[in-house]
Computed example of a mutant assay.
Amino acid sequence: MRLIGVGVGPGDPELATVKAVRVLATAGRVFVPVLDERDTGRAEATVRAHAAHDRIERLVFALNERRDRARRERYWDAAGARVTQWLRETGGTAAFATIGDPNVYSTFGYLAETVRDLLPEVVVETVPGITAMQALAAASGTPLVEGGEPLTLLPLARGVDGLADALRGDGTVVVYKGGRRLPEVTDVVRAAGREAVYGEHLGLAAERIGPLSEVEGAAPYLATVIVPARRDRRGGKL
């Protein structure tokens, strides 16, 4: 019995790795996370380009829940129980598709922990995927890091605390989950005297990429912001 977390990238089916495509094509069941069982989530939309639709099954998670821990955990428990049931009944290999990478702010970690508790003999693996910051860096022509520069990744779903401190250094800062607080993010970046690149719906038809300073109002939850490191000459950080 095997459970494999598969990173499918930010949304463009062509950004799924060769290994991810192979696992999605051969797994007995491909589970995908959704907010509502009636809707096709971003992970499923990507999976549908690589896996037979009759092997795809939706698992409902309270993906954006921040305050009601009991509600969030009920969904983790239900999803883990369903995956465990399938594994016990078939003894096969199940994949769980997640946007980006399964080890970077992913629902897969919670699912895997739940399944391990219910089914200790299960083998858990992950297939890395391209992250949103990599996709935005590529699409905007923005090198993420050079030489000895540090890279700081901040999730801002709970607020912009910590962003000003991160921007005091000269390394690159990437903001995830800050869409609803984008005006605050913009203000902090401006106050730090930095410029930033903004991206949303990366790799999809509604993709939007440009300077953060030109974006007004709130943005999608999964919007990404890259504040590049301060660089004054070629190879200056070597």
Rank of each mutant, 00 (worst) to 15 (best):
89 E>Q: 14
187 D>W: 12
165 D>F: 04
102 P>D: 06
158 R>S: 15
28 G>I: 08
141 G>C: 07
120 P>A: 04
210 G>S: 06
208 R>P: 05
195 E>S: 11
125 E>D: 13
89 E>I: 02
39 D>T: 14
161 D>L: 10
147 G>N: 06
9 G>F: 06
94 A>D: 10
238 L>Y: 09
38 R>Q: 13
148 G>P: 09
167 L>G: 07
26 T>Y: 03
74 R>W: 04
151 L>E: 06
18 V>A: 11
5 G>Q: 09
166 A>V: 08
107 T>N: 00
228 P>M: 06
25 A>Y: 04
112 A>R: 01
102 P>Q: 09
172 T>A: 11
22 R>E: 15
71 R>G: 00
94 A>W: 08
179 G>A: 12
170 D>W: 14
54 D>S: 13
139 A>K: 01
236 G>N: 02
39 D>W: 14
166 A>Q: 10
108 F>S: 13
224 T>Y: 04
142 T>C: 02
36 D>K: 00
91 G>R: 03
37 E>K: 12
200 E>V: 04
225 V>L: 08
159 G>Q: 07
201 H>R: 15
129 G>C: 06
50 H>Y: 09
40 T>D: 15
92 G>D: 13
58 R>P: 12
111 L>A: 00
101 D>W: 01
136 L>T: 08
118 L>R: 15
35 L>A: 15
179 G>E: 12
22 R>H: 11
36 D>F: 00
223 A>D: 03
75 Y>H: 15
196 A>P: 09
143 P>F: 08
132 A>T: 00
171 G>F: 10
40 T>E: 15
111 L>V: 05
137 A>T: 07
211 P>Q: 06
104 V>N: 02
235 G>E: 05
67 R>K: 13
189 V>S: 07
82 R>F: 05
166 A>D: 11
230 R>T: 12
100 G>W: 06
165 D>R: 14
99 I>K: 07
173 V>P: 11
56 I>T: 14
189 V>F: 05
114 T>Y: 05
94 A>C: 08
132 A>I: 01
233 R>L: 11
135 A>F: 00
50 H>C: 11
60 V>L: 01
116 R>H: 06
140 S>I: 08
37 E>I: 13
177 K>P: 04
60 V>H: 03
237 K>F: 02
17 T>A: 05
142 T>H: 04
190 R>E: 15
118 L>F: 00
182 L>C: 07
236 G>I: 03
2 R>H: 10
159 G>V: 10
92 G>Y: 09
44 E>H: 09
30 V>T: 12
84 T>E: 13
214 E>F: 02
33 P>V: 08
212 L>Y: 05
192 A>F: 10
106 S>T: 02
137 A>E: 04
26 T>S: 14
13 P>T: 05
66 R>C: 09
42 R>K: 13
170 D>T: 15
195 E>G: 03
150 P>M: 08
166 A>Y: 07
99 I>W: 08
221 Y>V: 11
200 E>C: 06
13 P>N: 02
101 D>P: 01
64 N>S: 14
229 A>L: 06
117 D>Q: 14
18 V>M: 07
110 Y>P: 01
221 Y>R: 11
112 A>P: 03
208 R>T: 04
68 D>H: 01
181 R>W: 03
77 D>G: 09
143 P>Q: 12
18 V>Q: 07
169 G>C: 09
164 A>K: 11
108 F>T: 10
